[in-house]
Design a protein around this nucleic acid. Structure first.
Lengths: 211, 211
DNA sequence: ACCTGAACACCGTTCAAGT
DNA sequence: ACCTGAACACCGTTCAAGT
């Protein structure tokens, strides 16, 4: 029955992510968030300078979950680890599709440089020539983040919108794909996997046959 | 000196694109747009149901400029045409980076199905097996649109933000890339080109040697 | 240090009224 | 049909005041 302890900045961020996941960024206001947290609509100004700072913190918090999502990669080759990191990053973004529009307000792909360094090291370990590995890193990040934004932004209606668009093409293969939104979602993941393999195979030299 | 003719819906869309290019979507309000057009802040309601309808019309207008941007492709192989379409779509988005956040509110990648049909036909002409060409189409569109969103969203500060992020990596190759924002921009385009070649080469069978 | 409540400028939208 | 101006609910932000 003790008084509620003073809230932390991280409490606001966590509540904002949870709420925005439900209602979208348009529905996330200081007033609605304050009501849900049992606070006034100006309480958050003790922790954030303005709303962009909240949005950036939300994005950085979401992205900081990627390494944990990756988990244990011991025993994986550099190629396998790269693919696993790509899938993990995509999965983290897929968990919060309604927050994706805030990605650009944050420091692009997270404030931490650890992921950049990690992926760069893996590219080098995978056999990439050192001089152009920032370019390939950039292409890799742009593919993973860009396709996630392309595929998930516009939630929660994104699947139905793409379904109608594909249905309008009129050819038989597109008709098959556009029967249900579940089929569209499955198709999105297949396309991502195909592209990911093509990207990794295209940039890294062929793996040595196991000896 | 005759009275100004009645404005069309397209006049509002064109003015809105021009204005948003200057000040960004946050600065585009019915009031600021009305002031610039010499109208009241409610005049546009004769032409648009709500603001999302304006944003969708802006996006569709921008995207409808892609075919014109592509221009004449006679004499190009399917592979060359695909690459040219990809570069044209990217260039059109690069011309309006501050409007990119509105992409998801429109019908994803434009309301017209012509581009989908065209690209699909090129993929087939390039030798792609018919049964999975919607998947490859999706991967292609996601790459082109997704990387453009990744690279240009957050304008006009996106280049400086990426520069600082790459600078924080600390390795020598990233130091070289992150010296200026011009270098970052050049690097973005190089990465896009590299990825594009990898995508096309990975999906289409090897082109026949010229006979 | 953290939070409240009043206040202010601004925004999207509605609607009755004008031409 | 197209546009105006008043009105309303809502939002981000500031600030003086409370604990």
């Amino acid at each position: 029955m003790g008084r509620r302890p003073t809230l932390q900045r991280s409490d606001f961020v966590a509540a904002a992510i949870e709420y925005a996941d439900e209602v979208g960024l348009d529905g996330l206001t200081w007033r609605t968030l304050g009501t849900r947290m049992g606070l006034s609509h100006t309480a958050a100004y003790s922790h954030f300078r303005d709303k962009n700072e909240l949005l950036a913190a939300m994005i950085n918090t979401v992205l900081s979950g990627i390494p944990e999502r990756v988990g244990d990669v011991s025993g994986l080759t550099p190629r396998e680890t790269l693919a696993h990191i790509a899938r993990s990053a995509r999965a983290v973004l897929a968990d919060h599709p309604r927050i994706i529009p805030a990605l650009p307000v944050a420091n692009s792909f997270g404030e931490s440089t650890l992921l950049v360094q990690w992926v760069s090291a893996l590219l080098l370990a995978g056999g990439l020539p050192e001089h152009d590995h920032p370019i390939v890193y950039q292409a890799f990040e742009a593919y993973v983040v860009g396709t996630a934004v392309h595929d998930f932004a516009g939630a929660p209606n994104h699947l139905e919108r793409r379904r109608l668009r594909y249905r309008a093409v009129g050819t038989e293969p597109f008709d098959v794909v556009s029967r249900t939104t579940d089929e569209i979602a499955r198709h999105n993941e297949l396309a991502f996997e195909r592209g990911l393999q093509v990207i990794i195979d295209g940039f890294l030299p062929a793996p040595p046959s196991s000896t």
